[in-house]
Write a protein that binds this DNA or RNA. Structure first.
Length: 285
DNA sequence: CGTATTTGACCGGCGC
DNA sequence: GCGCCGGTCAAATACG
């Protein structure tokens, strides 16, 4: 992975064999040799993991198709992590819809923060429900689980809806919404098959937040693309103009987000999970 | 006074 | 059958 300047090496190699510099050159050459071997090993590992990923991807596709055959209209469940101010005790996630709270329950796995139950009250017969609970390990994270499909548009008329949280400070911060692929959400019952995406709201310096979806399903799975459009999440791919706008800003977002240590950590956890989970699932069967 | 929220009771699924 | 637990209901309460 590391290369040395060939000109510098040439100069060094032309020096007297008996100088201390020659010994340095030998050491460097040994280093180079060792790093090349390391590089080869890593390449081999990468090839092996890519092969494994492809195999697992195929397996997952087969499993998903079997599952869809058995449960053709399974209820869509989408889960988000919303970063808020840890001092903000409310469980309000402003996502462009209007919600009526109908219950609250202390769950066994996270007794310190109760789970709130909401129904969509924007349309009379909208079947969508939402559960919101604070993350046990990181109190600044809200775990929002959406179930069902809206039969209407969001409150602001935008088919995308808008994510923000109740705390104004969080809106001013990098308001990152992450699907809890490998996060210890504890007690949320999201459909695992719908969790292979990371949903991100753009940094607040843009004029309005536009959710982006990073598909971590190792490409090729159309079923997950469908799931990403589930109305439980405030997204809609039908707006081509917004998609074009979104695409044109992806590079900016990537540059911005990769500077965010929290984001890179979450992304690393998500990627690791997407690689390791299928094999773990197979072992459980 | 109408609407939203809170909260204890109730129900059903699941494991033992 | 029993107990546990998550989810829902509905009466009481708060709020504008």
């Amino acid at each position: 992975m590391i290369s040395y300047c060939p000109v510098a090496l040439e100069i060094l190699m032309n020096m007297d064999d008996h100088t201390p510099t020659k010994r340095k050159v030998d050491a460097l050459q040994q280093d180079l040799l060792r790093l090349r071997k390391e590089n080869e090993a890593l390449r081999f590992l990468l090839t092996a993991m890519t092969t494994k990923c492809n195999t697992l991807e195929q397996l997952i596709r087969e499993k998903n198709s079997e599952r869809n055959d058995q449960f053709p209209v399974a209820q869509k469940t989408t889960q988000f992590l919303v970063r808020t101010d840890s001092k903000d005790n409310t469980l309000i996630v402003k996502d462009g819809y209007q919600w009526r709270k109908y219950g609250q329950k202390v769950t066994k796995d996270n007794p310190s923060s109760p789970r709130a139950y909401f129904k969509c009250s924007l349309a009379p017969r909208c079947p969508v429900k939402k559960k919101v609970q604070r993350c046990m390990v990181d109190k600044s994270l809200l775990v929002a689980t959406y179930e069902g499909q809206h039969n209407h548009e969001a409150i602001n008329g935008s088919p995308l809806g808008q994510f923000s949280c109740s705390s104004s400070t969080a809106v001013h911060n990098n308001n990152i919404i992450i699907n809890p692929i490998n996060f210890p959400s504890h007690g949320t019952s999201a459909d695992i098959n719908n969790n292979d995406v990371i949903n991100i709201v753009s940094p607040s310096n843009s004029s309005r937040p536009v959710p982006i979806t990073l598909d971590l399903t190792l490409s090729g799975s159309t079923s997950n693309q469908e799931n990403n459009r589930s109305a439980g999440s405030p997204q809609n791919s039908s707006s081509s103009a917004q998609n074009i706008d979104c695409e044109s800003r992806i590079e900016d977002y990537v540059a911005y987000l990769t500077k965010d240590h929290n984001f890179t950590q979450a992304l690393a956890a998500a990627v690791a999970s997407s690689i390791t989970r299928p094999s773990a699932d197979r072992q459980n069967q």
